[in-house]
């Protein structure tokens, strides 16, 4: 877990367009640019939080890049940037969002922010789990008296409290049904139950 700004990878074959995006994202985000699909697969790693993926690239379609990222198990939010309004379900394809070209600045920033937050939640929750699992293991192996003596255990409990605050700060308002469903989708993927695939949790 680092405190660096989120990393956005811009995959775009027109340098001027990529530069425009970079200017918008400056300050709030770190950026990396790749000019084609092959390069994208080289520069996108565990560190990336969000990928802006041009759908049409000379060497590789955005879908192919996406498939490879998912095959690598990279936990990254992917926005498809497309010249035409897609007539198919991009979410079904594994994209987390799409934006039509030319993007509106506010819309783009909003989508990036949302995906960066999701990525942060997943990382923070993973870290929280690791700490809690360590605590669970100590508690299974040591007596209560031994734990009370242990500075390492105290420190662990303290880190857990801090981490829990981080997680819950990022979690958002899960008291709202729609937000609760969004978080579940982000963490656990699309529902397996066929009839619920298009559900948002908003309709009765």
């Amino acid at each position: 877990m680092t405190d660096d700004p989120p990393l956005v990878v811009i995959v775009e074959d027109e340098p001027a367009v990529a530069e425009g995006y970079q200017l918008w994202l400056e300050g709030e985000y770190r950026t990396r640019v790749a000019t084609d699909g092959g390069e994208a697969l080289e520069v996108i790693d565990e560190e990336a939080d969000v990928v802006m993926l041009d759908r049409m690239m000379p060497d590789m379609a955005g879908e192919e890049v996406l498939a490879e990222l998912r095959a690598r198990g990279l936990d990254v939010g992917v926005v498809m940037v497309t010249a035409v309004e897609p007539d198919f379900d991009v979410i079904e394809m594994g994209f987390d969002a799409y934006i039509t070209k030319p993007p509106d600045r506010d819309e783009l920033l909003q989508v990036i922010e949302q995906l960066a937050e999701r990525s942060a939640l997943s990382d923070e929750l993973q870290e929280y789990y690791s700490l809690m699992a360590r605590k669970g293991t100590l508690e299974a192996e040591k007596t209560r008296a031994e734990l009370e003596e242990s500075d390492a255990y105290d420190e662990l409990v303290e880190r857990i409290d801090e981490q829990q605050e981080e997680v819950d700060g990022t979690l958002g308002d899960v008291g709202e049904e729609a937000e609760f469903v969004d978080v579940a989708r982000d963490l656990f993927g699309e529902p397996e139950t066929e009839e619920l695939k298009d559900a948002t949790g908003e309709e009765p």
């Binding site: 049904e177 989708r185 397996e192 139950t193």
Partner: peptide
């Protein structure tokens, strides 16, 4: 929902059921 492993399906159904209860 179709399986205990379908956590997103469970979450969506819980949300729907809550909407119904809240009425």
């Amino acid at each position: 929902v179709s399986s205990p492993g379908d956590l997103t399906g469970i979450s969506i159904s819980v949300a729907k059921q809550l909407k119904a209860l809240e009425t």
